[in-house]
């Protein structure tokens, strides 16, 4: 790979769109897609429990962070413009081809989530690959995906208290999975010098 020549502590390195990196992003996206696929029953189970009290949208918001993990992960491993977007979009595409329950909706959610997670890295100029950059990505992901659900899932017809509760739920979920979990994974990768492989 091109960054073999760089020092092992290459926290600052910029990646390029090489064939190898493209395959790497796609593979990570598919791995995460398949891991979530295994947790797919969670969504259905949560929805079944929450539907009778009309709180089913919370299932969506509770799991949002899980669905938005591929973006920050690929964004951190391949540090360049567009990698978070491509990773997140491909992760959603995997669900479509595995036969997910959202059909064409997953493609569009993938686009939206990809834009959300990419924006955060863009705001930090692709320079902050730390807690700050990660939080920027979490923030933009939550805002962009929530705005999309306001349109798509009719959140705009709910009252303010319910909207607020949904937003906070989504933020916490994205913070835990997209933030804390991603941070732990990146730390493991850092300690094993995987970024310089």
């Amino acid at each position: 790979m091109d960054n073999k020549t760089q020092p092992a502590t290459n926290r600052e390195h910029q990646s390029k769109w090489t064939l190898r990196n493209i395959i790497l992003i796609a593979l990570i996206a598919i791995f995460t897609g398949i891991i979530f696929w295994g947790a797919g029953f969670l969504y259905t189970a949560l929805t079944v429990v929450l539907t009778p009290i009309g709180a089913a949208p919370f299932a969506n918001d509770l799991l949002m962070g899980l669905w938005c993990m591929a973006g920050p992960l690929t964004g951190f491993v391949v540090r360049t413009f567009g990698s978070a977007f491509v990773g997140e979009f491909l992760g959603a595409a995997v669900e479509v081809f595995l036969g997910g329950q959202w059909g064409a909706g997953a493609f569009i959610s993938g686009l939206v989530q990809g834009i959300g997670s990419e924006l955060g890295f863009a705001f930090t100029g692709y320079k902050r690959y730390d807690w700050v950059g990660l939080n920027a990505s979490i923030f933009t992901t939550v805002v962009v995906t929530f705005a999309w659900d306001v349109i798509k899932n009719g959140y705009n017809k709910f009252g303010i208290p319910l909207l607020l509760a949904l937003f906070v739920t989504r933020y916490i979920s994205t913070f835990i999975f997209g933030g804390v979990l991603t941070k732990m994974i990146v730390r493991l990768l850092d300690r094993s010098n995987a970024f310089s492989l």
């Binding site: 790979m1 190898r20 990196n21 395959i23 979990l181 994974i185 493991l188 094993s192 492989l197």
Partner: peptide, 27 residues
Amino acid sequence: HFWSPKLYFKAILSSIQWSQNLAEAMT
């Protein structure tokens, strides 16, 4: 489980290795 960092860590290590192999095979 799906919330274990190690699962993703090992998946990414495999991805790194496989992407290298695939790219070289294609070349």
